[in-house]
Amino acid sequence: MPLTVKDLMKMEGAYLPGSAACPGCGLSLSFRIASRVLGKNTVYVVPACCFSVVQSPMPLTSIKAPLLNIAFAAAAAAASGIKRAYETLNKDINVVVWAGDGGTADIGLQALSGAAERNENIIYVCYDNEAYMNTGIQRSGATPRGAWTRTTLKGKEEPKKNVPMIVAAHKAPYVATASVGYPFDLIRKFEKALSIKGFRYIHLLSPCPPGWGIDSSTTVEIAKLATDTYFFPLYEVENGKLRITVKPPKRRPLKDYLSVQGRFRHLSDEEIERMEKEAINWWNHLLEMEKMESIL
């Protein structure tokens, strides 16, 4: 039986109100929900990212769970060390990295790849707000093509780095994309991740109102649009078998997603058309991969 809202209400989460998150933060929303599924027996590892600040300043923290902050590049390695130590103590505790896209796609990619290749028994969550938001909106490897940031004033020229597929190429037992736009899909993926042993990776789209130039009330709506326009497809790869988990009945035009965000406001129709083609291509590619016994 999949979890319902009523079930979740009975579960204890690790997020306490009164944190330093901006209003409408996709990170706090996804963490709030996921920490319920992950449960009390969970330790978090956080590299430098918005979450370092969202936790609140010392001597208090808004996170009611053991949490290790660690240097930017080091989250997956530190989490691996924690898990191995628990193994020597025969303690069955979930170890979960909660990292931004900079700490995942850029500076932390080596440690992530190492941990995935070693099939460390941890869950790595990248909450992807598609830029270095904590430092004030600079481009990362996960910033999508076309997006304005303070270091891509004319829009990013290169496409977004496809981290979930990079991790899948390590033959990690479980890789998924998820989004607060589809909360029950997200919940199910965390449940699934918990039921699997080995390296598990969840790539969460995490709208950022100040960074994306969106109204704080639209976080969930825009996250849903990202999927409905094929811009951020929701899928999972379990032991090589790919499955698209959310198939919008009818694709929405990409313009619906881009035009409501300040970061894409400068885009010409041609540029939007190019990005739409890329999105549809990737979607079709996913459909093809879905037919395969294994994508690896």
């Binding site: 306490l16 109100p17 009164g18 944190s19 330093a20 300043p57 010392m58 001597p59 208090l60 808004s62």
Partner: peptide
Amino acid sequence: LPISRPSKGASGRTGVW
């Protein structure tokens, strides 16, 4: 030690925002 304890309102009464 550089450790913190969990608390509601760790960043203050954010309702004033």
